[in-house]
Write a protein that binds this DNA or RNA. Sequence first.
DNA 1: TTGTACGCGTTATCAA
DNA 2: TTGATAACGCGTACAA
Lengths: 344, 344
Amino acid sequence: MASITIIDIAKMCGVGVTTVSRAINNHPDISEETKAMIMKVIKENHYVPNNSARNLKRSASKTIAVLIKGITNPFFNRMIKVFDKEIQRKKYSFILQRVDDNQDEIEVAIELEKEKRLKGIVFLGGNFSHAKDKLEQLTVPFVLSTIGMTPGYEPHEYSTVSVDDFKESYKMVDYLCKLGHRKIAIITASMADVSIGRLRYEGYKQALEDNGLELNEKLVGRMKENIESYSMENGYVVTKELLESGEDFTALFAVSDSLAVGACKAIFESGKSVPEDYSVAGFDGLDITFYYNPSITTIRQPVEEIAEETIKVLYDLINKKITHAHKVFPAELIVRKSTIEPSR
Amino acid sequence: MASITIIDIAKMCGVGVTTVSRAINNHPDISEETKAMIMKVIKENHYVPNNSARNLKRSASKTIAVLIKGITNPFFNRMIKVFDKEIQRKKYSFILQRVDDNQDEIEVAIELEKEKRLKGIVFLGGNFSHAKDKLEQLTVPFVLSTIGMTPGYEPHEYSTVSVDDFKESYKMVDYLCKLGHRKIAIITASMADVSIGRLRYEGYKQALEDNGLELNEKLVGRMKENIESYSMENGYVVTKELLESGEDFTALFAVSDSLAVGACKAIFESGKSVPEDYSVAGFDGLDITFYYNPSITTIRQPVEEIAEETIKVLYDLINKKITHAHKVFPAELIVRKSTIEPSR
DNA sequence: TTGTACGCGTTATCAA
DNA sequence: TTGATAACGCGTACAA
């Protein structure tokens, strides 16, 4: 069944296509009555404009795209809601694009920019280590949200909005140290990681050092490559190994809340308890840390603020008010039931 | 900066646009060397075809779309992965479209169908109560996945793949009854719900009846409209009310796992414990039910199978092997630590 | 094997 | 306030 087009509508109304187009797009130069008449015919015939044709013709649409790598992350859900709200408030429309783990987000972005005539792009998640010439193909402004600074780039070449992963991670480990823990294990990203996993690990190292503790490689758990990263399962498996290694520790810092949940489970299964035998701390501030039993000590990222600021920066970029920006938000250490003083 | 087009490439290569098009789309009628040469030029100039133009021109693309209402649901994440895999296996491409809570998924579908020349559509989540004439505007086959039968439609008018929400819910409540519970509370959808929330509630009622128990309206908790549906927070708030109402119960059946987690938290905060004071059961089979402390008894939906079958049905629909189908998968009662015999 | 020319459905330009 | 018409960038008959 051939779809009905703008031409069909024009014929049915006895007007030119231009007029129909005007009616659809709320153009000023059209009388109220012809517009009403046209809209009525459109409704009756269920005419829906073809977006491909619109995008093709339109020189610039007011749409911005959010590319997400790793949609699994519950952390992003709240951000998306804020994006949606903020973008609508600015009368822009909003496209959410999932980027597969084995897809290159920049390539997706380049394609999308042409297809949808984007005004701006937000990148969420992922490592973002890209060749420069690729990045230069992006002609619209973009913001890296909750993605740490990327080594190898000049700060003026891109914009970011995030927390200081190093500092916040330091804060947490320092808190554990001050609590009296001297054997603090960590679950972090694989060696290759250059993004937040690395930064949080560095914070851990520095905090240990500043507290006069030596780094014990045996207490550094790395996420499994073959299991979904930052997942509960990964935390579970790595903690099991840590526990079975025989290397003693009294506290465990997981670089994400989901990892922390998995860690708790592993500890329970070994017949031990949290926090009596092991203190466990997470990072991100997911809802589950509040609902878990025991509730989990974590670093709460100000998700809403980060999302809002991301959009704000993007608009400033679009309107050329700025050329780049690196906004850093403070995160909050939330002490809950999963961490206490060491018993041994 | 004006984007580079296929014409530019043709000129640079000294060939016609057709030839370039052939190179891009792997058409047979082109010599290997010219193709290689063209591809090289394309690479060097970072030429990316404009998708809008392609979609506009293409009569039919091999793409299918998955529309999700309520992307928050972690339940869908695993399904999406399977969709992705299965669709790629059939050499189709795959679009994920998030549908806002206040958006009409059918309207989104209609628009998308035209824009992308879809071959088929999968609807995930939502209530799916739509006027018939709207549904008829969809000219491509579609499948409702994990969405229960919708009253008001003839079974041959649409296709579904899901579990039998009524039966599985019955199974869970029956299990609780057999355990000896006689005061079983439920957290379910609001009265208005016509979808899974309703079906699961009906299963609850029937199981009570068959076990000689009377329905106590005071033990029926309804999700709050102003809080995200099926969320931990909703379960938490509703359970608090239930607890404070003074109406005694020994078991609580939450119609989703997230609700169950929230319920457990509320119980802990009241100074009681799970399962000693209250047995708690969920529904869906999310990972968190395994990782929670105590682990939560649930009904595990065979997510992967459902997703696979959804795609299979959709392809059969596309290839006109069938006109409609209603596949129902059995779900599994997984008994964990959160449910025991009543202590009172 | 290659190239020319037209059309996909829409919006912008310009003239009426 | 309207309408004819030229793009937008690509794929594909059809001709060469």
